[in-house]
């Protein structure tokens, strides 16, 4: 009721001449508040089980009021297999992101600064690559990896993940380097820098925010990937969190719901926080759609 009152007041100030109109407006605004609240609830309510069960000593597969404890998180970090999942996820995501950026920054520099033949075609081709759904190439990819003896290994998965995130990285970084005036580099040459010296002194420092954004996007894509590790990895020792959670959930005999919920909370925290940093930057870049999935 308090909101309705403030609503009416605020509309009254906006639409001074029509006192009677303002009541209609207030009702309409209240209805729109109801709509947006319902939408927000729809988005948030599914998380209730995870958040409540993560701190529940008696956690089960459904929502209940928790008997508060942090024991589930303690168990996550002290159990035999779960810390390994987190370590694997970090190892795979950080390495793939590093490789992705190392290739991407130089590639993007070439795409931004040099007008070579086939540059446009290349840019459009990598944009088109983004439309290839991962399930459509996974079968052949798996067989190739087996033939190269890269299946069931960190290295293989890291290479695949780094490559999969490259088109987006190249597009983002090319845009970021385009925004750095070429004159700055030319000035550095005048002062006696080599071409690479100028890249190091001018481009690297100035491309910082773009590089950061590309790093976060690549990291989140690898971190969240489910299909690729599901197909490429067989040994539980190598599983990242995504597969670990899936296996734990589908282990019909005995699911430890508390630890499962705690794992999910731990698993979702990095992307949720990183996304906060990214948000403002991302949607100015034309490739904002890259964050989905």
């Amino acid at each position: 009721m308090a909101t309705a009152a403030t609503l009416e007041k605020s509309t009254a100030t906006v639409r001074k001449p029509h006192r009677r109109m303002s009541r209609v407006m207030a009702v309409r605004q209240a209805m729109q508040y109801v709509l947006i609240v319902l939408l927000a609830l729809f988005c948030l309510v599914p998380f209730a089980w995870m958040v409540l069960s993560a701190v529940d000593a008696q956690a089960g597969p459904t929502v209940q009021s928790p008997e508060f404890t942090l024991d589930n998180f303690v168990r996550f970090f002290t159990k035999a297999d779960t810390p390994r999942l987190l370590a694997n996820s970090l190892l795979i995501s950080v390495s793939a992101t590093a490789l992705n950026l190392a290739c991407g920054i130089f590639g993007a520099y070439a795409l931004s600064r040099i007008r070579f033949r086939g540059r446009k075609t290349f840019m459009f081709s990598i944009l088109l690559i983004r439309v290839i759904p991962p399930p459509a190439t996974i079968v052949a990819l798996y067989l190739m990896m087996v033939k190269m003896s890269l299946d069931n290994s960190y290295l293989g998965l890291i290479l695949v993940e780094a490559a999969a995130a490259l088109p987006v990285t190249l597009w983002l970084l090319k845009g970021a380097i385009d925004a750095i005036p070429f004159e700055l580099e030319e000035a550095a040459w005048m002062d006696g820098s080599t071409r690479f010296g100028a890249i190091r002194k001018i481009v690297f420092p100035l491309v910082g925010p773009g590089l950061g954004a590309a790093a976060l996007i690549a990291f989140m894509a690898v971190w969240g990937d489910f299909l690729t590790p599901l197909v490429l990895l067989q040994s539980p020792d190598l599983y990242p969190l995504s597969i670990g959670l899936f296996r734990a959930f589908t282990a019909f005999n005995q699911v430890d719901w508390g630890v499962l919920a705690a794992s999910a909370v731990i698993y979702m925290t990095p992307p949720a926080i990183l996304y906060g940093f990214l948000r403002r930057y991302l949607f100015r870049a034309s490739i904002g759609s890259a964050v989905k999935g």
């Binding site: 599914p46 089980w49 995870m50 969240g224 959930f249 698993y267």
Partner: peptide, 21 residues
């Protein structure tokens, strides 16, 4: 932020939350 959250979490977490729902 509430509306963004479902997109931001990894897909496995998204499925897990809905399994309880």
């Amino acid at each position: 932020a509430a509306i963004l959250l479902p997109m931001v979490v990894p897909e496995v977490v998204a499925s897990l939350t809905w399994a309880s729902v």
